[in-house]
């Protein structure tokens, strides 16, 4: 079993594989309720099952495209590219793993940052791409995240990050660990300038990413049923030698324990994040935004 499976369970991978095996425009089976879903319908519902509301994983770039207004999106820090500072090699060279991930995803690394608008409200948004080495945080992710925060400071706007990550990128060892401090420091600066940071934790967000930027939102939001935690379930089970409670480390568990502010359905994400940010920045409400969700 790969380390990626260990973190996420096999669901995510099998979902991706299944999607790949089905020709476009055909039926897709929901992993959760097994309902047959029409491809174009799923696109319309932002990859949320219309029958059972299971949130299927989505890629980082798609996330920002569906979240930001279609007009005026501009990608930032596109030139930041990975290196192999430690000449790391396990079964495979890290350099080789980067190449494979780049070819497989079309991304340079696991974070995408864009400047744009949300219902007209200017902001900077970043999103992890779990398909790129499990969304692991190495030097590029850290640097791009920081540049996103700095762009937000420069234009005096809020910053939002959609996380989905297995944690630190082991192949960069201490460089990777220190990205936790680097990203947190950038958020401290943003906070000192009085600008809001919203963290949206999506399935799965664990390890070094949850133990740094993802838990530091002025508002922490999770998608339904997202797995969120510090340590992996297997490590905890081996340490405490007891069965983990039902729903452990799921978004609902975190809400109950007071770790996150709210759970938001992906289909409502734009409207509800806008509502929050408009209030936090003393901006106008949406014309249609008076009713509670």
């Amino acid at each position: 079993m790969s380390w990626l499976d260990k973190i996420t369970g096999s669901k995510l991978v099998s979902a991706a594989q299944r999607t790949r095996n089905v020709p476009e425009g055909l039926w897709i089976k929901c992993d959760s309720c097994h309902a047959a879903l029409y491809r174009t319908e799923l696109e319309r519902t932002l990859e949320v099952c219309p029958k059972c509301s299971a949130h299927r994983p989505i890629r980082g770039r798609a996330r920002l495209q569906q979240f930001l207004d279609a007009d005026g999106r501009e990608e930032l820090a596109m030139d930041v590219s990975p290196l192999d500072p430690l000449k790391f090699k396990d079964g495979k060279r890290y350099k080789e793993r980067i190449k494979v991930a780049q070819a497989g995803t079309g991304e340079r690394d696991a974070l995408i940052v864009m400047r744009g608008r949300l219902h007209g409200l200017p902001l900077v948004a970043s999103a992890f791409d779990f398909a790129f080495m499990g969304g692991s945080m190495g030097s590029v992710v850290g640097e791009k995240f920081v540049r996103g925060a700095e762009a937000a400071i420069q234009q005096g706007s809020p910053y939002i990050c959609f996380s989905s990550s297995g944690g630190a990128r082991m192949q960069e060892s201490l460089f990777s660990l220190f990205q936790m401090a680097k990203t947190s420091a950038a958020l401290a600066k943003l906070s000192d300038r009085g600008l809001p940071f919203i963290s949206v934790l999506t399935h799965p967000t664990t390890g070094g990413v949850s133990a740094s930027l993802a838990m530091l939102g002025d508002v922490n939001i999770a998608e339904p049923n997202a797995l969120i935690g510090f340590a992996g379930a297997r490590v905890i089970e081996q340490t405490v030698r007891q069965k983990l409670p039902e729903g452990f480390q799921r978004a609902e568990f975190l809400l109950e324990h007071g770790h996150i502010d709210l759970i938001v359905d992906r289909r409502e994400m734009r409207d509800r994040v806008h509502r929050l940010l408009a209030i936090m920045t003393h901006g106008p409400a949406l014309a249609s935004g008076s009713a509670a969700p």
């Binding site: 936790m180 401090a181 947190s184 420091a185 958020l187 401290a188 600066k189 906070s191 000192d192 949850s210 133990a211 740094s212 930027l213 993802a214 838990m215 530091l216 969120i228 935690g229 510090f230 340590a231 992996g232 490590v235 905890i236 340490t239 405490v240 007891q242 983990l244 409670p245 452990f248 480390q249 324990h257 007071g258 770790h259």
Partner: peptide
């Protein structure tokens, strides 16, 4: 390392670490 236990997760080990990084930076 930080303790990986059920109670530690229930009391938000992630946030405790993240908060220290955030506050120590400033």
């Amino acid at each position: 390392g930080a303790y990986p236990g059920i109670g530690a997760e229930e009391r938000n080990q992630s946030e405790a670490i993240a908060r220290n990084l955030f506050e120590m930076a400033r």
